[in-house]
Structures are given as structure tokens and as C-alpha cells.
């Protein structure tokens, strides 16, 4: 229950952090809010020789507008994302998901970028980020690059962030005026979802004109339910029409089997949760 001894550089700038990562290579792990890494260290599932703490890097925290996008610093806590008026106005889906992410204590320590970089397929932020078409700004020794959400999630706990690189900010296109809902199915409160669905819809005069739907824990990465999105466009925001589109939620999925449910079982709640999420997002 006590981690293996490690060195602990605490840089105060991205430049210093990148230098620390370059120096230690794959002996180093980055710690953001520590809500996933600390249990891993305590259970000795991983024993890095160096833990680089990003907590002292002020430039990685905060939320700002940049034209048609919101820019969320990677070290912004869940609590700050949840309570930010800009996020509420332009990316309501993130508020809906953050509201159900773990508990208040974890939301005060854990970070938006840390959770996305951890890439737990049961994590609550991957599906909303994917559905909203987030862009991930990744800094490396040669400068910064931007990776689209479709390319960011590679596999179980694996992202496009390469060794020696840091996720610095996440750019979210504005979805001003869209309805949103995150429907999460758990056995006990504050747990990782067995399955969850992130939905954002634009409703004009009772008709769904645009839709974004992301699935949590229906594969080794978050999954964009594009066939559901296509089926929703042009449909009335009614129970029957939405249920018909939501029936496609399992297309292209490859759900895991674990103690909370076998893969075939997970295919049952996915369309149900999709219907509920879309209807709630549409205010129907």
C-alpha cells in the first residue's frame, strides 16, 4: 500500500516539464490530479522511477474563449469545468458529464486533461469529448501539434500522446444553444459506468437538426455513434423516432466483459441509455 520510492520533479512551466520527461524517458510518469495514478502506485501496478508533477504549472489551468472554440487547460479540475459559465453556455454536454463524474472530492483534485490522457474506456469524459469533436493540443520537444478526437483515443489506456509529450490543452468547438445530457448506468453511485451515453442535439421547431452521440465503455476506446446521429437528423424529438434511431447504438461497438456485465449484456442498455440521453438532451 506504499508506492515504490520515486524521484519527484515539480516543474513550474511546460518547458521544464518537457525537459524532465526528455531526461528520464520511459522511467517517468506524469502526475496531474493523481486520482488514477496514485491508486496505481499504491497497489504497485506501476513503479515509475520518476513522477513529474504538473500541479505547479499555472499556464495549464483555466478556461478561455478562442474564436469558435473553448480552450480548457489540461490541469483544470473537474470542479472548475463543472462550474464554469463559458462551458455551461457553449459545451453543456461537458457540464452534464462532469456532474456525474466520481464524487465531489475527486472532482476537486482530478483534472480534465488528466482523465482524458488516462483514457480509461470507462472514464466519463472520453465520449463527450469525442462527440463534441474536441481537439487535443500536445506539446513536445519540437513544439505543439493538434490531434483530432477521432485520432486521440488509440486503445485501452492508450492515446496519441507519445513518450516525452504532454497534453496541454483541449479545444472544444462551441455548441451554443444545443441541448445535452449524459446518461450513466452504474450499480452504485460514484462508480465508473457500466455503459454511459453522451448526447448533444440541436432542436429547431421540434425537429432534431443536428446530433452528436458518444458511447462510454462500449469498446476499448470511447465510440462515436455516427449511425445514431445520422438517423436522428430530420426526425421529430419524440419517443418513437428517437427510440428507432437509438436502436442503432450497438453498431460498430465491441463492449468489454467484466464483473459488472458481460459483453452481450452491455448491448442491452446501450440503446436504452441512448434513447434516454437524446430525449433528455432534446428536452422531450
Amino acid at each position: 500500500m506504499i508506492p515504490v520510492q520515486f524521484d519527484y520533479p515539480a516543474p513550474t512551466s511546460v518547458e521544464e516539464a518537457l525537459a524532465a520527461l526528455a531526461e528520464h524517458g520511459d522511467d517517468a510518469k506524469v502526475i496531474a490530479g493523481g486520482q488514477s495514478l496514485l491508486p496505481v502506485l499504491r497497489m504497485r501496478l506501476n513503479a515509475p522511477e520518476v513522477v513529474v508533477d504538473l500541479g505547479g504549472i499555472a499556464e495549464l489551468r483555466g478556461i478561455r474563449e478562442d474564436g469558435d472554440a473553448l480552450v480548457i487547460g489540461a490541469m483544470t479540475t473537474h470542479h472548475d469545468v463543472l462550474n464554469d459559465p463559458l462551458v455551461k453556455e457553449h459545451a453543456l454536454l461537458l457540464v452534464r458529464a462532469e456532474h456525474q463524474l466520481a464524487d465531489a472530492q475527486i472532482r476537486h483534485r482530478g483534472t480534465f486533461g488528466g482523465a482524458l490522457a488516462h483514457a480509461d474506456p470507462a472514464g466519463d469524459l472520453g465520449a463527450p469529448a469525442l462527440a463534441l469533436g474536441a481537439e487535443f493540443v500536445i506539446a513536445g520537444s519540437g513544439g505543439s501539434r493538434t490531434v483530432a478526437a477521432d485520432d486521440f483515443f488509440v486503445d485501452l489506456f492508450e492515446t496519441a500522446i507519445a513518450e516525452g509529450e504532454l497534453l496541454t490543452e483541449i479545444r472544444i468547438p462551441k455548441f451554443t444553444g444545443w441541448g445535452a445530457h449524459y446518461e450513466k448506468f452504474v450499480r452504485v453511485a460514484h462508480q465508473w459506468p457500466i455503459v454511459a451515453v453522451a448526447a448533444a442535439v440541436k432542436v429547431d421547431g421540434g425537429t432534431i437538426s443536428e446530433a452528436r452521440v458518444g458511447l462510454t465503455n462500449m469498446g476499448s476506446t470511447p465510440i462515436r455513434a455516427r449511425s445514431v446521429e445520422e438517423a436522428l437528423v430530420g426526425q421529430p424529438a419524440t419517443e418513437d423516432a428517437v427510440a428507432s434511431a437509438a436502436a442503432r447504438a450497438t453498431e460498430g461497438t465491441n463492449p468489454p466483459s467484466d464483473l459488472n456485465g458481460a459483453a452481450d449484456y452491455r448491448s442491452h442498455p446501450a440503446p436504452v441509455l441512448t434513447r434516454r440521453a437524446v430525449l433528455a438532451a432534446a428536452g422531450a
Binding site: 450499480r187 452504485v188 462508480q191
Partner: peptide, 29 residues
Amino acid sequence: ALWEEAVYDDAGTLVSGSFVDYLLPTSAD
């Protein structure tokens, strides 16, 4: 009745060995 379960795999290893997998209700549940 609803949550707590000691689950073993085929090799006899306890797989619900932490409170991540061995579910306890809180006041929310």
C-alpha cells in the same frame, strides 16, 4: 441482496478484491 459479492475466477483468485469491484452502497444508493 443487490451488490456485495466475493467473485473468484477459475484459478480460485478473488477478483472482487478491492472496493472498486466489491460494491458497497453509500447513502446515495
